[in-house]
């Protein structure tokens, strides 16, 4: 049906029994480019690649939902992911932050709840 691509261990832990979760030990851009590669292979993006109103240089976690089915290249998915990568690179270029562990836990929780709301809509 669909798979979550994520670098957030909390998503792996909490969503694994509901939906396929593909955990990648990479950064935010790594998740976006991994997803872009899959879109080029014909998968369709099912959740928006930007996280709510949290700016791309304010979080290190990213979870995206992508279809398991493959078809011809979906141009809408490609446009969204390319635009998200462009926006993310712009923000990272402005400032990179050093986060403390409490903040990182909050980021994990928020990424988890954002992707949960998408999974709830889907199931």
């Amino acid at each position: 049906m669909a798979t979550i691509v994520t670098n957030n261990l909390l998503v792996l832990k909490k969503m694994n029994d509901k939906i396929a979760v593909d955990f990648k030990d990479t950064d935010l851009i790594g998740i976006l480019t991994e997803t872009r590669n899959r879109i080029h292979r014909g998968h369709v993006l099912l959740s928006h690649p930007l996280s709510g109103s949290i700016k791309p240089n304010e979080t290190v976690y990213k979870s995206l939902i992508i279809s398991d089915d493959k078809a011809e290249l979906d141009l809408d998915s490609l446009r969204l992911i390319e635009s998200a990568i462009e926006t993310t690179l712009k923000f990272i270029g402005m400032k990179e932050y050093k986060w403390n562990s409490r903040t990182l836990e909050d980021f994990q929780e928020i990424d988890f709840t954002l992707i949960s709301s998408a999974v709830e809509s889907m199931i």
Binding site: L45, L46, S47, I115, S117, A118, M122
Partner: peptide, 8 residues
């Protein structure tokens, strides 16, 4: 303004 693209 939802996360899931089909909702949008």
């Amino acid at each position: 303004e939802n996360v899931f693209l089909a909702d949008k």
